[in-house]
Design a protein around this nucleic acid. Structure first.
Lengths: 210, 210
DNA sequence: TAACCTACCAAACACTTGTTAGGGAAGGAT
DNA sequence: ATCCTTCCCTAACAAGTGTTTGGTAGGTTA
């Protein structure tokens, strides 16, 4: 296993991804292709085509196809957890925490659409491999954050007590993250607007109150 | 339909699928592997292993790997639409139609878990290929059924008018179908029970009414 | 000038992929 | 006993896979 050399922190570039220079560009296009076709269905020659070079040349920048995927996912998760941890550290009430987590999630989808789509598709299979152990760890943290918030809300009367909390957790989680499969940045709605509407449905339902 | 154990080379262990004879058995195991690893990530040798024969022998039963996928998906969709059409033909009110569609969906997930998981993963890419054109057609029918029901509900005051209907459609659709990724038949909840809870959340929200 | 670094290409490598061809064992029907 | 059908195996095929090696053009530094 090669040690990850320190990933340079960056400023914003033209694409959505970070990481400066050629390496960052290549990662961004790789993420795009992975998201569109799936990881295993994507050949390195396809990535190279999209980036405008030959397949072998990718190995000047990366150890392997797998290490590209690794870097894409870990970079995304690092930024995701920076946002989540900030929300959780604020120690808001259950409802406000839920709202902040959902809003933050849609912001991440907006910024890392490709990475989120890849994560959705491949995380389940990858979490088993040792190299991607951080995916399983992230999923546990994820569950603790969301499930804990829901349980706090049930305890203090914010959320309904007659629902299976675990079911509600999966409901909220999936509801938010599958949006990455159809969301396109620059569309009609901003991430915050989508978050607002989603929260309205999740919290109050789509039926008219009688 | 209880003892659905075993992993390796089994002969009986009928899974959820039907279809008689050896062909049906092979399709069921193929669906299981496709669902677990993804279509392109699955090799025909892996399917053959799980079924207890050699890769080449699969071609006595099927034309190609793709035709296995085709048969799995089209069989599932045929049965799905039989259920949906029955619901729609009943011409219930918007709320009752929604409830019936959701319940029917969870029943299909219960019966065709593997096929649904495959559909979720691969439909987007496959819909482009001519052979799988029925996937795109099915998606259009799907959208008409759900979106139409929501619009009828907004028109007659059943559903909230202050929500983006298209967003609500994706919300409901995704909420229901991603359940196939974690649902396991024979679990704690019956399909009907899960449908009831999901409907409760979608219609009335998870927040306590004040 | 020479040395060096970055970013790439051209060509091959070993391996895996889906698929095919020919053959044969078992069993029922004739 | 013969035929036929069903089901599978052995052995290979060409195409495609991720990856490696050696080389090179152009810019920067010494």
């Amino acid at each position: 296993m090669t040690d990850n050399e320190s990933v340079p922190i960056s400023k914003k570039t033209t694409t959505d991804k970070q990481a400066p220079g050629r390496r960052g560009e290549l990662l961004a296009t790789a993420a795009e292709v992975f998201a569109a076709q799936g990881y295993t269905a994507t050949t390195v020659r396809r990535i190279a085509d999209a980036a405008g070079l030959l397949a072998g040349s990718l190995y000047y920048h990366f150890d392997s196809k797998e290490s590209m995927l690794d870097e894409i996912l870990s970079t995304f998760l690092d930024e995701l957890w920076a946002g989540y941890d900030a929300v959780l550290a604020a120690r808001l009430g259950p409802r406000e925490t839920l709202e902040a987590l959902v809003t933050e999630s849609f912001r991440e989808i907006d910024r890392h659409r490709a990475a989120v789509a890849i994560y959705q598709r491949e995380a389940k299979d990858l979490a088993g491999r040792p190299r991607f152990g951080y995916l399983a760890e992230s999923q546990r943290k994820f569950e603790r954050a969301w499930l804990g918030t829901l349980e706090r809300g049930v305890a203090d009367g914010t959320f309904r007590a007659d629902l299976d909390v675990r079911l509600a957790y999966r409901f909220v989680r999936d509801t938010v993250w599958v949006a990455a499969s159809w969301y396109r940045p620059g569309g009609a709605h901003s991430p915050e607007e989508i978050a607002r509407q989603y929260l309205s449905m999740v919290l109050d339902g789509i039926a008219v109150r009688t």
